[in-house]
Simulated scan of single mutants.
Amino acid sequence: MMLDVRGLKAPQPALMIIESLGKLKTGETLEVLGDKPFVDILPKLEEAGYKVEVKEVSGFFVLRVTKTEDSKELSMEVKECDDKLEEIGEDTNVAKLLKA
């Protein structure tokens, strides 16, 4: 199975990877093409029993994840932002705006 997450912002690549891994059968491999070296998700994949390999190819990164007999199902919780902005003006904090 192949997945292209180039240009996507976190946490979307991780969510797509986890969803795709749920469709794999033991021995099957997911190949993911990305802009970054997948450093945030690698420890989780290895801890869950997946065989993991990352290579840099032509300025992009290729993550190969193989499901083993010992692989455990992964999940990721995404929390909704509870910050609310009543009004956006010149004094609005940009970080709070992006979070909202």
Score class of each variant (00 low, 15 high):
residue 74 L to C: 09
residue 5 V to I: 14
residue 84 K to D: 05
residue 20 S to R: 14
residue 61 F to K: 01
residue 94 V to C: 08
residue 68 T to H: 03
residue 13 P to T: 11
residue 86 E to I: 11
residue 16 M to F: 12
residue 42 L to N: 04
residue 28 E to M: 10
residue 66 T to K: 08
residue 7 G to N: 13
residue 71 S to L: 05
residue 94 V to L: 13
residue 5 V to L: 07
residue 87 E to K: 15
residue 60 F to M: 09
residue 34 G to C: 07
residue 90 E to C: 03
residue 29 T to E: 10
residue 86 E to H: 09
residue 3 L to W: 04
residue 1 M to Y: 09
residue 31 E to F: 06
residue 1 M to Q: 11
residue 64 R to P: 00
residue 12 Q to T: 15
residue 81 C to G: 14
residue 26 T to M: 07
residue 37 P to Y: 05
residue 24 L to H: 01
residue 41 I to Q: 01
residue 73 E to Q: 12
residue 50 Y to D: 09
residue 25 K to F: 08
residue 69 E to I: 06
residue 48 A to W: 06
residue 47 E to S: 13
residue 57 V to E: 13
residue 51 K to D: 11
residue 57 V to W: 00
residue 43 P to R: 09
residue 30 L to P: 03
residue 62 V to M: 05
residue 9 K to L: 15
residue 43 P to W: 09
residue 48 A to N: 09
residue 66 T to L: 09
residue 29 T to F: 07
residue 32 V to N: 10
residue 75 S to R: 12
residue 12 Q to M: 13
residue 64 R to W: 00
residue 87 E to T: 10
residue 26 T to I: 14
residue 38 F to S: 07
residue 99 K to T: 05
residue 44 K to D: 12
residue 10 A to C: 01
residue 100 A to Y: 03
residue 50 Y to M: 08
residue 22 G to Y: 04
residue 93 N to D: 15
residue 16 M to R: 15
residue 14 A to W: 06
residue 24 L to F: 01
residue 59 G to F: 04
residue 8 L to H: 08
residue 94 V to Y: 14
residue 11 P to T: 11
residue 12 Q to F: 05
residue 65 V to F: 03
residue 64 R to T: 06
residue 21 L to E: 12
residue 52 V to N: 05
residue 43 P to A: 14
residue 68 T to K: 08
residue 45 L to C: 02
residue 84 K to R: 14
residue 95 A to D: 15
residue 31 E to Q: 15
residue 87 E to G: 00
residue 61 F to S: 04
residue 48 A to H: 03
residue 90 E to T: 09
residue 94 V to N: 02
residue 42 L to D: 01
residue 68 T to Y: 02
residue 72 K to N: 12
residue 7 G to S: 09
residue 28 E to P: 06
residue 33 L to N: 02
residue 80 E to D: 14
residue 66 T to A: 06
residue 73 E to D: 12
residue 1 M to V: 13
